[in-house]
Design a protein around this nucleic acid. Structure first.
Lengths: 341, 341
DNA sequence: CTGTTAGCGCGTTCAA
DNA sequence: TTGAACGCGCTAACAG
């Protein structure tokens, strides 16, 4: 096998007849007042030799990795398949890339978290995490990660006030849940179901808290929480079906997210149950595919992409300024009306 | 700002009273036959000091980056929002992570491609690309990337035979298209529409080729290709609606993927057009959310996650063995029957 | 089995 | 304005 030797600064220097440092300076745009002549020669040598800076050397010298890690703690191997995650990661990745940083992406089940490369080795300048699991589990995770030297951003979860080198960025899921529950209760619903997943996600829990706080104020209205064993289509449907078999059709199903809502709608319609006449349904997140539902879903618009971008901005600012300027950022959610309620 | 000095091998060596090399060897599991005694001491020092290996130093010394880059060429900022991409990336990421490599993820519009860090700097050991654009544009991209020293895997596109250091991994979209078109034609459809996106993706083109090759064999059946200006729900619906306004309801809509199919179905049902009685509809990919359609979609199951995993396996093998053992891997697709046909 | 030496590619420091 | 020396943290090669 023929491996071409990599082109280094030294090669460029030799070719252009200047010193290594001059090349480095030209490449990094320092010494603007360098001779136009030498600048040209260097640039020519760079492109004719196909020089690319070796980021290992640069990183070692500068003690910076020019990369941020995003960890998604999720038992599913298709950890990134969820629309929320997808938007969050896209926003984060784009912002970092536009600012000279790479995004290192890794999904992991909780029990493997401590063994992942990003944590065992020092290879990123900052860490972002989007974590599922029980509250206790999540707290332990944040605790562990905040012991590492990298600044940490936690998405979609609230932190205890302790740690100043951790920033949480989340959206107002509780308010969103409250708004939807209020609408449903106002419309006269008595029996209300919150249909969520057995595997705990902090956002789903926050939505539930919001819903509870609303329903509490409607004495004639009762709330039942149903947990689907996992997030796939059939699991959600079976969960709802078996509840209805035992307790009859409720007045409303508040779903933890749009996927759940659509699965519920499909099953209800298949049974000949009418939406919204016989039952109201709401979702959460309002990404494009919420429109795939019939009738169109009443749901909350989540700013996931913007939160990803913001995470990138904040973590780069943190590196520059040495500390987070804030500890907790909460983004608003917005009602998107459909015909399911 | 208080920055703790990073713990290095030297610190561990000092603390445990051995040489730096011994520490390195213990950490890397070399010299299994090292004195149990010293091994213990080193391990204790490592954990008490919280030592983590600095990957910059290691990378520089070994001339390996322990990272693979995945580039997605897509004009949309939410480049990763598509279910196909999502599954591909998840499979790739998981495989790499399990084998000691990181995945660096970046989406970019075509015109920015040449400027991205992954290409300007040397920072990954291998490159994967999932590229949209016209055939000519894509060829130019592969041409450019294959000039870099990193081994390259191209997903979902066929390459010209030239370059031995490039591997393409794709699925049999043409066969999938042909199977669906045959089923539709066999069921008696005369006017058939292929509903796809204006922005070119190689997989959508391959499906179209398969469909054409099928329809050609049915003299009584004609094919029209419709291109939605972009992939969102409404754009697809408007495209179909305006065709039907001019030409009436066709006998079948073959959609480029499931999202398109579902958008079409929603619109058709809203118009009171019955599926499959008045019109047949098919999709492509069959990820979980294909089930959100009513009636359930007849579609092809795509092995995107497995292709991602395979890509990881092949690129790591390439690094080890110095060359790809194959040049082109084609994975089968599988019919998934629903009630839309 | 363990220690010493050397150098990977880069940018800071200091000298010219 | 440019050049030479140095060392970031690590491991291969070799010496002991």
């Amino acid at each position: 096998m023929l491996t071409l030797k990599r082109v280094t600064l030294k090669d460029v220097a030799k070719k252009s007849g200047v010193s290594v440092m001059t090349v480095s300076n030209v490449i990094n745009g320092k010494f603007q007042h360098a001779t136009e002549e030498t600048r040209k020669r260097v640039e020519q040598a760079v492109s004719s030799l196909g020089y690319r800076t070796n980021l290992s050397g640069k990183s070692l010298r500068l003690a910076r990795r020019f990369a941020v890690g995003m960890i998604i703690v999720d038992p599913s191997p298709t950890f990134i398949a969820d629309a929320y995650t997808t938007n969050l990661v896209a926003g984060l990745s784009n912002f970092l890339n536009l600012n000279g940083y790479g995004l290192l992406l890794q999904g992991t089940p909780l029990r493997e978290l401590s063994n992942i490369m990003m944590l065992r080795q020092s290879l990123v300048d900052g860490l972002c995490i989007f974590c599922s699991g029980t509250r206790t589990e999540r707290r332990a995770v944040y605790e562990e990660l905040s012991k590492h030297s990298e600044p940490l951003i936690v998405f979609q979860d609230k932190l205890d006030a302790e740690n100043k080198s951790v920033l949480s960025i989340r959206q107002d899921d509780a308010v969103g849940g409250r708004i939807l529950a209020n609408m449903v209760a106002e419309s006269g619903a008595r029996k209300v179901v919150y249909l969520t997943l057995a595997h705990p996600w902090p956002a789903l829990e926050a939505r539930e808290r919001g819903i509870r706080s609303s329903i509490r104020r409607w004495p004639a209205t009762s709330l039942t929480v149903l947990q689907a064993p996992n997030g796939d289509f059939e699991s959600v449907q079976v969960t709802l079906a078996s509840y209805i078999a035992r307790h009859g059709v409720p007045d409303a199903v508040l779903a933890g997210n749009d996927q759940i809502a659509i699965a519920a709608q499909c099953w209800l319609l298949d049974q000949g149950i009418r939406i919204p006449e016989d039952i109201k349904v709401t979702g959460f997140n309002a990404f494009d595919f919420a429109r795939y539902a019939r009738p169109t879903l009443t749901t909350m618009k989540s700013p996931a992409y913007e939160m990803g971008e913001l995470g990138g901005r904040e973590i780069l600012a943190r590196m520059e300024k040495g500390r987070f300027l804030r500890r907790d950022i909460v983004m608003p959610v917005r009602l998107q009306r459909g015909n399911s309620l």
